[in-house]
Write a protein that binds this DNA or RNA. Structure first.
Lengths: 222, 222
DNA sequence: TAGATTGTTAATCGATTAACAATC
DNA sequence: TAGATTGTTAATCGATTAACAATC
């Protein structure tokens, strides 16, 4: 039986499934068991079957899962298969890195404009994406609606930029500023804190050093 | 009572605590209750007290927590307070973004070298960081040990780069390639999958659209 | 002292794992 | 059919929340 509320824990694993299935497809594997997929991903077979069952009956007893079919299904759950125009505020390194992330366009993400405050950035066209003055953000959005906004500004202006995006019709914000953006309930936000992930790394490194390099067994990968 | 094994769930929250406490300190707040901190961070007061108690007795009944003291303590648990030299393989946008992330140096992270394969990158010095040919990686590490390695290469070479880093003495790998690096038990790895986080965002956006914009209440922020 | 707020134990909730009957 | 492997229920485990005595 399908689609009772999918838990957050499951949702966070979905992109991983998608990625692994895509890689399997690429190397020509067409079917896979929960056992085998689990071994590759570092999850239990049981968990994989539970996860997949959240959104319907996709496997076949005695056979396993069809890789292409499963990937397509997970992709559609993730909202792929449609095109997402996105705007980027903050044309620094992170903004540019995001704009040019390989594989972005093939997944339907299209950066249509960047915004910055620096005079030497404004007016440039970087790999086809024009950089506008951030003062033009509202006016631009009025003409060119975008569902997704990327915030790659310094923390101190991030909330205010988000505000303008939301007023301009942006419904999802991907935030790289080191602050947790607050948004209304009809807008989604994902705060990516790069430094946080580095600190988790140093924590583990530190622990390992304290423990005198003793292998602390399975360090979970996140 | 302190330090029984700190769970992974707690560890992942620590950088958040650190960040909020730092911001509080900046605006001059010197003491805070679990109640108030919870309200700001979107956690329950109970959870905050549980978390903090994992690593000792830091609060005072009837008073709360001393912001500066708590931040310093969490910082030291996270392994801050020492200097970390880091090398970056892949001098593209993400590599550069990482190298120049503001606040890096004030937290003790110092990029000492970048490596790439592109002839037009090799030999450049970008904001003080030299870019070498990746073929020189081993030789470089032999002379300049670094604890942390950043992998910001295409996926297809990432595992091999990690291998070389590890052989060169790197003990922690911060990976941005869209693949889960496998490392031996005495090395730590943190796989940052930017696309994964974007897909979680589109999932939620998609759900919200399906639900006809109805506010789906508390969208957790991660 | 009285009020506030922690530290900590117990209760609840949710997520993962184990087991196995259903079925391809 | 026999073997494989799912779908699904039950058991376990862990994390979060609630409650309250301890104490500043």
């Amino acid at each position: 039986m399908a689609s009772h509320k999918i838990s957050d824990a499951v949702i966070r694993r979905l992109p991983g499934y998608y990625r692994y299935l895509r890689d399997l497809e690429k190397i020509g594997i067409t079917r896979i068991s929960s056992q085998e997929l689990g071994a590759r991903m570092g999850l239990t077979a049981s968990q994989i079957r539970q996860d997949i069952n959240c959104f319907g009956t996709l496997g076949q007893q005695g056979y396993g899962y069809n890789v292409a079919e499963l990937r397509a299904h997970i992709g559609s759950i993730l909202g792929l298969g449609q095109k997402y125009e996105l705007i980027i505020v903050g044309a620094g390194n992170i903004g540019q890195a995001v704009a040019w992330y390989p594989g972005f366009s093939q997944r339907g993400f299209e950066p249509i404009a960047m915004f910055d405050v620096k005079p030497d950035m404004i007016g440039r066209v970087i790999r086809g994406v024009p950089v506008y003055n951030v003062t033009e953000l509202r006016a631009y959005l009025a003409e060119h609606p975008a569902l997704i906004g990327v915030v790659s500004t310094p923390a101190r202006v991030a909330q205010q930029v988000a505000q303008q995006m939301i007023e301009g019709g942006v419904r999802a914000i991907w935030n790289f500023a080191p602050i947790d953006l607050k948004v209304p309930a009809n807008v989604v936000v994902n705060n990516v804190h790069l430094t946080d992930s580095l600190l988790v790394l140093t924590y583990r490194l530190h622990q390992m050093e304290l423990a005198g390099q003793s292998p602390d067994a399975n360090i979970p990968v996140d």
